[in-house]
Amino acid sequence: MTWIFENWERFWEVTEVHLRLSVVPVVIGFVLSIPLGWWASRSQTARAILFPFANILFTIPSIALIVITPVLIGVKILDEINVIVPLVVYTVALMVRAVADALAAVPGNVVAAANAMGFRPLRRFLTVDFPLALPVTIAGLRVATVSNISMVSVGALVGLGGYGQLFTEGYQTDNTDKVLAGLIGTVVLAVLADGLLLLIGRLLTPWARVGR
């Protein structure tokens, strides 16, 4: 623990990088997965294409995806994009299923009632389906966020920033304290992000807590 206090500035610096590298992909991935998940919730064909594809994406080791990305999109190996793109891919792979499951679980009679009252599809999606799908969607988002925060560290193995740098440097200089500092930082960040999403979810879906 002493390392953190003795090297506060450095610790804060890697925390910032780590946060940026994990939150940006979650946001991009989440936005992308909403239309994809909506498509998968409505079409058998979409599911047959998206779900197996998402499964295969999951099997690619993160370190491999990080080293392959620069070659595929033609940027330098030390660019932050190389962590962001793989993490977006993982987020989408996870969230497509979560959003699809969440939308599929919206009670059919509610949808039927909304249709009967004359909602047009887009408005119904935004004001009925999506809000009702939020609890399950946010549960998925929490898993994606926590695993992203933990996965960003892998980028350090190829020299990118974040807490992972403390791991590799600690390993090379035999400094257990430094590794531990990065580990604690990762876990605290994950727990905070998870708690924040939980709170947001509760504020957005007050109906889910009443009547229990």
Binding site: S147, S153, L157
Partner: peptide
Amino acid sequence: RALPTTAV
């Protein structure tokens, strides 16, 4: 789940 495998 939050534990980074690399660090462990």
